[in-house]
Design a binder for these strands. Structure first.
Length: 878
DNA sequence: GTCTCCACGC
DNA sequence: GACGTACGTGGAGACA
């Protein structure tokens, strides 16, 4: 890819920022709004464009060569307010901190500097991006020069390439100057031709192409008045053209090479931000990867150990088991780093796995191990016959609990967030994508993992301190940590897949898909790629002329809800829906699962991500076993391929009934809702009866369906819009439902209001076990952001507390199964249900044990209810 | 490789 | 009236 050059019009952006933002000042009383705005824009460019060359150009002084042509150039402009002009020196300091070059040239404007450099770089075939608020710069647009103009605010831009320019302004880049010459520009005091505005100018240019031609062919101009005006202002027009023409050969003394931008040093920028009081921007540089290469890390003293002996261990060490790939069920262990208060060791997995001393230490419950990702560490080493015990600290889980909104929870990112800089990002050491590999130099590799272990060792104290401060230590230590080990066992154990059965279903689907596909092609009158919405769209909405219901950014929407509305209109529609349904089953579930099944054991080993969701739920990847079909019979049959791993065993599934609504009843202490659960009412019927104001016996199935959707909406925190979509009603009607719901359950309403109020006060919401979710947008002036945050505030405690409940139940159940010496064991968790496998003969006792553990793991002020079932396959456990 | 669209579960 | 609307994962196509 061509190198990227970014040229910023410094004055223009500073002006924009100044006027777009309120007049902020920092604690020293210095105005910083323009600098702040400029910085947000700069950070965005660095993140998104990653320029190889970067320059900020400024205007120099009052007079320019243009004033010789026209003394009134830029006349009548308001003087730059002192609140802004005093920010320019600060802005330049900021650029110095970033290591970004800036330049100004006597008698020239920023435009000319940019024009000259852009032209040079463009000629060399580099990729150029110009950033400004000044439309004049659009004349620079070409195949490899884009110009981004600020819209509202500062970071919001329109990026013009020749096509977009033509679309927006109806001119080519070279016509921009003709356009300005004709219409003038009051802000620069450029006269143009009085009486000619944008419309007329565009019209003239369309007809005559350029200014010179307009005057050569004045006779052909339509309209007497216009002709006169053009005639009498010819000099002004040509002078205007000269004024707005950017000098692309200004005598600049900088070259492209001078503009090389290697990235900034986090340290310097951080310091400067702190000085200016830009607290909110700190996280954007600290989490930034790969920019502090310049600051070489100090060497650390690492001992590469081949002969492991028990003397090495103090009983409190950080342990890092390094793999290059994230699937720890398969990824080879590249090395092991161990750090304690005196030493740093690294070992190869070969040496470690054949060492009795290592195994002894690893499996000794009394020898503390501090790790990053207990689950991955344990599972990876299990493959080498080592069952790690004694893990007392997990940096990954700690970091996740402290703030689930951070999306990067690897050791370097956490370290940087916690103010430690002594470790590189993996990408720097390993590269990324296809080029990712272990460094050829072992020293580099061992140093890297040694540093990681060092970080784990070092950060334990402050991470635990933070958890305690947040009153989350129990959540961490008694819930998530033990759960990690249980999940690890579940993953490692795996679920047996009936591969032949799945294969058989695949073959059958294959045949049916071919048939349906042929029918669709027949009805469409042509063949096309049925999996491509882009190709399907035109067939349905142009060729077959079906009514367009919804559009997407890129074309016609062909989503299921759209197609369902067209079902009656053409017989091709139901076939497409069927094709989609079967195709999904085949590609995602049949082929997808077969792809990841372990070839020796026929088992599937998912990974539960315990440090991802914002609410505290788990997620499942590689494969995702939390979205195996159930709703439609056709898909549900996939579950027949999930079978017990032993002869004479059964699959046993147990799920909470309405756990979220029960949690809601508990938290909100709503009398009616609590009563309904205590009495064992059907909650959807109950809600329908309340919302529609009819007797429970008079609730129709349609009322119940709608009430169910409302309950669903409450649980998931959807908006009136969301509810309107799911019920196919108007937004007003949906809102009416929601209002009615709150009227019916005043306790719920009160809870919702309290929660939002509390979230506004503290900035976060919590669950039963003190899991947190921060909601910075809850005080946003932006209605959408704020509304979303408010719904999140209402919903997260419900969903998150339900997650707490089932997680705790898993710990209790694991304990109980061990205690009572069950052979039965957990395999999967799907948010509100647990799937186990068990010997047939344990089933009777299991029913009772599982249900009672799940129901009583936490006592709420409504009963928790658990349903269970079992059978020879997961399908039968329904 | 990354984005978009679509579809599956809770 | 804004403007994009519960949380996730994954497959396929399109584009670079």
């Amino acid at each position: 890819m061509a190198e990227k050059v970014v040229l910023i019009d410094g004055n223009s952006i500073a002006y924009r920022a100044f006027f777009a933002l309120p007049l902020l000042n920092n604690d020293k009383g210095v105005y910083t709004n323009a600098v702040y705005g400029f910085t947000t824009m700069l950070l965005k460019i660095l993140e998104e464009d990653q320029p190889d060359h970067l320059l900020v150009a400024f205007d120099a002084g009052k007079t320019t060569f243009r004033h010789k042509t026209y003394t009134e150039y830029k006349g009548g402009r308001q003087k730059t307010p002192s609140e802004l002009s005093e920010q320019f020196p600060v802005l330049k300091e900021l650029l110095d901190a970033f290591g970004v070059k800036y330049y100004q040239l006597d008698q020239y404007e920023a435009d000319d500097i940019i024009g000259t450099l852009a032209t040079q770089a463009g000629d060399k075939g580099l990729d150029v991006k110009v950033i400004s608020g000044d439309k004049d710069l659009l004349q620079l647009v070409s195949d490899n020069i884009t110009v981004s103009l600020t819209k509202k605010g500062i970071t919001n831009v329109d990026t013009y390439d020749p096509a977009f320019l033509l679309e927006k302004m109806e001119v080519r880049p070279d016509q921009v100057i003709d356009l300005k010459a004709l219409m003038g520009d009051s802000s620069d005091n450029i006269p143009g031709v009085p009486g000619v505005g944008e419309k007329t100018a565009v019209k003239l240019l369309k007809q005559f192409d350029k200014l010179e031609k307009v005057y050569e062919n004045l006779d052909e101009v339509s309209g007497k008045k216009l002709k006169e005006k053009l005639e009498s202002n010819q000099d002004e027009a040509f002078m205007s053209k000269e004024l707005v023409t950017i000098d692309r050969q200004s005598p600049i003394e900088v070259t492209l090479e001078d503009l090389a931008f290697p990235g900034y040093e986090t340290q310097k920028v951080t310091e400067f931000f702190k000085e200016l009081g830009f607290q909110s921007l700190l996280s954007r540089v600290q989490g930034e990867a790969g920019n502090d290469e310049a600051a070489e890390l100090p060497d650390i003293d690492i001992e590469v150990v081949e002969n492991i002996n028990s003397e090495m261990f103090t009983g409190q060490e950080a342990l890092v088991v390094e793999m290059l790939y994230d699937n720890y069920h398969q990824a080879p262990i590249e090395g092991i780093a161990i750090v304690n208060d005196t030493k740093k060791y690294v070992l190869s997995i070969e040496d470690a796995s054949k060492s009795d001393e290592f195994k002894q230490w690893a499996e000794d419950t009394n020898k503390e191990k501090w790790v990053f990702d207990a689950k991955g560490t344990v599972v990876a080493l299990l493959r080498y016959g080592i069952h790690v015990q004694g893990i007392t600290f997990d940096l990954l889980l700690a970091s996740y609990l402290i703030n689930p909104a951070e999306n990067n929870h690897d050791i370097p990112a956490i370290s940087h967030r916690m103010g430690e800089n002594a470790v590189k990002y993996d990408e720097e050491v390993y590269g990324k994508g296809a080029k990712m590999k272990r460094p050829d130099d072992d020293d580099v590799f061992y140093t890297h993992i040694g540093r990681k272990a060092q970080m784990v060792y070092q950060l334990k104290a402050s991470a635990e301190e933070q958890l305690k401060q947040n009153e989350q230590f129990e959540l961490y230590k008694e819930l998530e940590m033990p759960l990690a080990l249980i999940l690890g066992q579940m993953e490692h154990r795996g679920v047996l897949l009936d591969v032949d059965r799945l294969q058989g279903m695949g073959d059958e689907l294959e045949g049916r898909l071919e048939t349906v596909q042929a029918e669709i092609y027949e009805l469409a009158g042509e063949t096309f790629n049925l999996n491509s919405p882009k190709q399907l769209g035109p067939i349905l909405f142009e060729k077959l002329e079906l009514p367009v219901i919804k559009k997407t950014k890129t074309g016609y929407s062909t989503s299921a809800d759209v197609l369902e509305q067209l079902e009656e209109k053409h017989e091709i529609i139901p076939k497409i829906l069927l094709y989609r349904q079967l195709g999904k089953l085949k590609s995602t579930y049949i082929e997808g699962l077969l792809k990841v099944v372990h070839e020796d054991t026929n088992k599937i080993h998912t990974r539960f991500n315990q440090a991802l969701t914002q609410t505290g739920r788990l997620s499942s990847i590689d494969p995702n076993l939390q979205n195996i079909p159930i709703r439609l019979e056709e898909g549900r049959k996939i579950r027949q391929a999930f079978v017990p791993s032993k002869e004479g065993w059964v699959m046993f599934a147990s799920d909470y009934s309405q756990i979220e609504l029960r949690v809601l009843a508990h938290i909100a202490k709503d009398e009616k809702l609590m009563a309904a659960f205590k009495e064992g009412q059907d909650i959807h019927t109950q809600t329908a009866s309340e919302v529609f104001g009819v007797d429970k016996d008079d609730v129709t199935s349609d009322m119940r369906r709608q009430a169910k959707a409302v309950n669903f909406g409450i649980v998931y925190g959807i908006s009136d819009y969301g509810l309107s979509q799911s019920l196919g009603i108007s937004r007003k009607e949906a809102q009416a439902f929601i209002d009615k719901y709150f009227e019916s359950y005043p306790g719920v309403k009160e809870y919702m209001e309290d929660t939002v109020r509390e979230a506004k006060r503290t900035g976060y919401v919590t669950t039963f076990m003190n899991r947190r979710r921060y909601l910075p947008d809850i005080t946003s002036r932006n209605f959408n952001k704020r509304s979303f945050a408010e719904r999140t505030a209402m919903n997260s405690p419900i969903q998150g507390s339900a997650a707490d409940v089932i997680k705790k139940a898993m710990i209790d159940l694991d304990q109980k199964l061990k205690e009572d010496q069950f052979q039965a064991r957990m395999l999967l968790q799907v948010h509100d249900e647990l799937i186990l496998e068990a010997p047939e003969e344990e089933v009777e006792k299991l029913k009772e044990v599982v249900a009672s553990v799940m129901e009583h793991t936490l006592e709420l002020n409504v009963p928790l209810e658990v349903d269970y079932s079992y059978g020879p396959t997961w399908y039968d456990a329904k």
